[in-house]
Design a protein around this nucleic acid. Structure first.
Length: 598
RNA sequence: GCGCCUGUAGCUCAGUUGGAUAGAGCAGCGGACUUCUAAUCCGCAGGUCGGGCGUUCGAGUCGCCCCAGGCGUGCCA
C-alpha cells in the first residue's frame, strides 16, 4: 500500500549541519545581504574580534530605527552580570569602529552597538542584483552536480485522492522546487501504493458485491465504496480478512484472475490521479510504485539474510531492532507474502543504483516516523554508506470533525470536491469584482487551486490540521489569493507604466521607511529559500511572501508608482518590478501559478 | 506502560536557532475607493507564551517534572 495520508531527526539534522558547512565553502553565490553583513563583520574584526565572538554577537535589532545590524557586547565579557560593564564595553569598542563603505553610522545603545547601512547603496546592490538575476534570484549553487530524490504524494491506488494526500503532494512538490533552486538535480518519484493486502480486500469485495458496469462508469467512486463496504462487512464476518489475505497471496504468486483484476483497478485509478496532478500542475519523473519492485524482493530478502540480519520469528521474517530501542522490522508475513518495508528497502537500493542520489527525501506523514527509523536502521546495518543520506520529512495529519480522516471508515473529503468548490467560489468573486476579465475560468482555477495549496503550506508542516471549509475558502488576509492578488496588482501597474523598466534610476528617491523595508525584505529572499530547503519547510517561503506582500501593499496604498515626476516613477517601477519578480519566484517555489490579472 | 509530535490573543498561526518593548491574519468595533485592481490599506481592542522548577547576565526559545490533545508501539500501508 502507499504512504497513507499521513527519527532519525537528530541524526539527519546533525549530518545536514555538517554537510552544509562543508558545502558553503564551495558556494560562490554572494547576495547583497551577505555582502553587507560581512562588511559589518569586517569592521568588528579589524577592531580585534575573533570569528567565534562575531558569530555569536552579530544580530538584527528588533526595530529598524535602532539600526540594520547589531552587536551585543555582553558576550565579550567574562563576568556578564553587570549591565553597566556591558554598556561600558560597548562604548569602548565603538570608539575603535569606523564607518566604511556600506556602513554609514555606528551607534551605541546599552550593551549593543548598532550599525546603520547606507540605504541608497544597499538598495542599489539589492535591486540591481534582482534586476540582473531576474528569475534566478534566490538560486544557489550549493547542490551543483548533486542529485536529490524525493518520494512524495504516493497515494494508494484504488482509493480516492483525499485532502490528506494533498499534504504530501504539495509539500513534496515544493521541496523539489526548493532543492532545484539550491542547484540540485531533483528526481520526483510517486511511490504509488499499488501493491499490498488492500488489493486482496478489493478483489474479495469486487467478486462479492461489485458490478463491472458501475466500475467502468465511476471507477474510483466504486472502488472506494467497495473498500468501505469491505471494512464494514469485515466487522461482522472475520473470515473476510482471511479471504483478503489469501487473495493477496495469490496476487503475489502471479495467479491470472488476481493479476487481471489488480491491473484493471490500477489502470483506472492511475488515470484519475493523473487528472489531479494535471490540475495541480505537478509532474513526476517516475511513477514506479510498490509493484515495480516485486521482482527485486527475493534478492532483497537474500541480501538481508546473508548480512545476518533477517531471522525467523513467530513464523515471520524480521530484522530484530531491539538493541536500538525499536520494534522489529517485518519483511515477510507468516503466509509468505511481503510487506511495505520489504518493498521500500528494495526500492531505495534500486533508486541508489539508478540515480546515485546524494540525498533521498521521503515526504510521508508523521504517523510513519518509527517505520522510517526502522528501515533506515536496517539499511545502515546492511552497511550501505548512503543510509545516512536518507531523510524522512514528516508532517501532521489532517483531521476532520472528531477523528482523523480514514478511507476505511469512509470519512474522507474528496480532493476534487475541494477543487470544485474553490474554483466555483473564485469564479463568483471574479464575476463580482472583475466581470470583464478574460479567461475567467483559467484564472479562477489558478486562484482557487492556489488558495488550497497555499493553505496547506502556510503553517509548519508538523502541525496537525483540522480540515475547515471556512479556512480553505477564505480568500482574505494571509492567503494564497492575497499573494496572487498582489502579484497581479503589480503586474497591472507595470502594464500601465507602459515603458521599459530599467535600472538606470535615482535610488535616493526610494528612501521612505516603507521602501526601505521592502528592499530589506527583498534582500532576505535568498536566505529564506535556503532556510526553507535546509529545514524541508515550505512554510518559510509562504511566511516570507506574506511579509513581502504586507509591506508592498502598504507601499502601494501610500504612494503612487505612476506619479507626476518621471524620475520617481522610474525608481518605483524598478522597485515594483523587483517585488513582482520575487513574488513570482516564491509562488512558483510553492507550486502555485502567477496570474497577471485577476 | 514506553517513545515521538503539538500547546503563544476568542480562532488560525509567526517569532531570524538564547538577546533590546512577543508580532500578523481572521472574527469584533471605527475609518480610507471620481486617481496605478478595496481579494487592499489605516486605527482601536485583544497576552500569566499550557503549568511548575531549574540552567543563564538574559528563556516563548535550552533541561527536568507535571497537564492537555494527537500519533506510534510485530504479521496494514
Amino acid at each position: 500500500m502507499g504512504r497513507g495520508s499521513g527519527v532519525l531527526r537528530f541524526l539527519n539534522d546533525k549530518k545536514n549541519g555538517l554537510s552544509n558547512k562543508r558545502l558553503s565553502l564551495l558556494n560562490m553565490t554572494q547576495y547583497a545581504e551577505k555582502i553587507v553583513r560581512e562588511e559589518v563583520a569586517r569592521i568588528l574584526k579589524n577592531a580585534g574580534l575573533n570569528p567565534v565572538e562575531l558569530k555569536a554577537g552579530l544580530g538584527t535589532p528588533p526595530s529598524p530605527e535602532l539600526g540594520d545590524y547589531s552587536f551585543n557586547c555582553v558576550l565579550l565579557l567574562r563576568d556578564r552580570r553587570s549591565p553597566e560593564a556591558a554598556a561600558a564595553k560597548a562604548k569602548d569598542l565603538a570608539k575603535r569602529l569606523k564607518p566604511k563603505k556600506y556602513v554609514t553610522k555606528i551607534e551605541v545603545s546599552g550593551p549593543y552597538i548598532n550599525f546603520f547601512i547606507d540605504k541608497a547603496k544597499f538598495s542599489a546592490l539589492v535591486l540591481r542584483e534582482i534586476w540582473t538575476q531576474a528569475d534566478s534570484y534566490g538560486n544557489w549553487d550549493l547542490g551543483a552536480g548533486k542529485t536529490v530524490v524525493v518520494d512524495f504524494s504516493s497515494p494508494n491506488i484504488a482509493k480516492p485522492f483525499g485532502v490528506g494526500h494533498l499534504r504530501s503532494t504539495v509539500i513534496g512538490n515544493s521541496i523539489c522546487k526548493l532543492y532545484e533552486s539550491l542547484g540540485y538535480t531533483c528526481i520526483g518519484i510517486n511511490h504509488l501504493g499499488d501493491w499490498g493486502t488492500q488489493f486482496g480486500k478489493l478483489i474479495v469485495a469486487y467478486r462479492k458485491w461489485g458490478k463491472e458496469k458501475q466500475l467502468k462508469a465511476k471507477p474510483v467512486q466504486q472502488l472506494y465504496d467497495l473498500y468501505v463496504k469491505f471494512h464494514a462487512e469485515a466487522q461482522k464476518d472475520k473470515s473476510l480478512e482471511e479471504e483478503a489475505r489469501d487473495w493477496f497471496r495469490r496476487l503475489e504468486d502471479g495467479e491470472q484472475e488476481a493479476t487481471r483484476l489488480w491491473r484493471w483497478f490500477r489502470d483506472i485509478s492511475l488515470k484519475e490521479f493523473r487528472r489531479i496532478y494535471d490540475i495541480l500542475n505537478i509532474h513526476f519523473d517516475s511513477y514506479a510504485g510498490e509493484s515495480f519492485y516485486n521482482s527485486m524482493l527475493p534478492e532483497t530478502i537474500t541480501k538481508l539474510k546473508t548480512a545476518g540480519l533477517a531471522q525467523e520469528s513467530q513464523g515471520a521474517l524480521i530484522v530484530d531492532l531491539e538493541r536500538f530501542g525499536m520494534s522489529p522490522c517485518l519483511l515477510r508475513k507468516t503466509d509468505g507474502s511481503t510487506l511495505y518495508a520489504t518493498r521500500d528497502i528494495a526500492a531505495v537500493i534500486y533508486r541508489f543504483n539508478t540515480y546515485g542520489f546524494d540525498k533521498m527525501i521521503y515526504v510521508v506523514g508523521a504517523d510513519q516516523k518509527l517505520y522510517f527509523r526502522q528501515i533506515f536502521k536496517v539499511l545502515e546495518l546492511v552497511g550501505y554508506p548512503w543510509a545516512n543520506d536518507l531523510v524522512h520529512v514528516p508532517f501532521g495529519l489532517v483531521r476532520f470533525g472528531t477523528g482523523r480522516m480514514s478511507t476505511r471508515k469512509g470519512n474522507v473529503i474528496f480532493l476534487e470536491e475541494v477543487f470544485q468548490k474553490a474554483v466555483d467560489l473564485t469564479e463568483k468573486i471574479i464575476e463580482e469584482k472583475n466581470p470583464d476579465l478574460e479567461d475567467k475560468h483559467e484564472i479562477a482555477t489558478q486562484v482557487g487551486i492556489g488558495a488550497i495549496v497555499f493553505n496547506d503550506l502556510s503553517t509548519k508542516r508538523m502541525k496537525d490540521v483540522d480540515f475547515s471549509w471556512d479556512r480553505m475558502l477564505n480568500f482574505n488576509g494571509q492567503t494564497g489569493p492575497y499573494v496572487q492578488y498582489t502579484y497581479a496588482r503589480f503586474s497591472s501597474v507595470l502594464r500601465k507604466y507602459g515603458r521599459q523598466v530599467d535600472d538606470n534610476v535615482n535610488l535616493s528617491l526610494l528612501n521612505s521607511d516603507m521602501e526601505t523595508e521592502i528592499v530589506r525584505l527583498l534582500s532576505r529572499f535568498p536566505e529564506a529559500v535556503k532556510h526553507a530547503a535546509d529545514e524541508y519547510e515550505p512554510s518559510v517561503v509562504t511566511i516570507y511572501l506574506l511579509d513581502l506582500c504586507e509591506a508592498s501593499n502598504r507601499f502601494y496604498n501610500h504612494f503612487r508608482v505612476l506619479s507626476e515626476d518621471l524620475e520617481t516613477s522610474k525608481a518605483r517601477a524598478l522597485l515594483v518590478w523587483c517585488i513582482r519578480t520575487v513574488l513570482g519566484k516564491g509562488l512558483r517555489l510553492l507550486g502555485m501559478e502567477t496570474p497577471k490579472r485577476m
